[in-house]
Amino acid sequence: MASEAYITLEDVAFSRNGRPIFDDVTLSIPKGKVTAIMGPSGTGKTTLLKLIGGQLKPDSGRVVVAGESVPDLSRSALYRLRERMGMLFQSGALFTDISVFENVAFPLRIHTKLPDDMIRDIVLMKLEAVGLRGARDLMPAQLSGGMTRRVALARSIALDPELIMYDEPFAGQDPIAMGVLVKLIRDLNRSMGLTSVLVSHDVPESLSICDFACIIADGHVIGQGAPDELRSHPSEQVQQFLRGHPDGPVPFHYTAPKAEADWGIEGVGRD
């Protein structure tokens, strides 16, 4: 890795309700780049983002963001750190009772004391960046899924953060909306000098925009590197995930008792 790390995870272990989710995850995310974290569904990719954002605390190990150890921060220091982060939730998580404009203005109104006309200018600029300046007066319920995510993106960049985290940005989007999001993520990263972390299981889209990728499965990092390095990765598990083979190290069948026992034909002849 050429550039310095913005986020470092060292030997992070985390379990929920006694079920281990991560076990010794070590990962560093370079500054100013797009990093994709990929993995099958249910491997705790969203949990990883919550650990970085300090919404969850690891059982052991260190999570360092911008030089600060997140689990050890006081509540107010954590909130100050979060002002420098943006996060795009899977559902968009727009506030349903206020308009698109007010949604984008929300972080500005809370964290800055800017006059109203300046807030208006900033909000319109951010909406312009995602191509939705014309939708400012709509309510969140009137937006399509792709538009919701773009508004949420405008809201996450309202405070010009250093880091932006995308939680499954492509899930459930039509090809056009997906194309728009891919373009936006890449453009924003370039124009604002952001560090971007992308959590996804859409392999081609993620690999097409990321500078660095890592694949998590079964609580471990099973492969990491630049997209090209990953494509020629020796691990069978990595190859199965990237190519989407139905059977392989991750078996097609969920662990089950022997089929003969379930159908009751073990050792029984036909009458």
């Binding site: 909130y79 939730f89 809370i110 964290h111 949420a152």
Partner: peptide, 14 residues
């Protein structure tokens, strides 16, 4: 359920 509370937390708003 719609992650509005989480997203508020992530915006640094309690």
């Amino acid at each position: 359920a719609t992650e509005q509370l989480s997203s508020m937390e992530m915006m640094g708003v309690d």
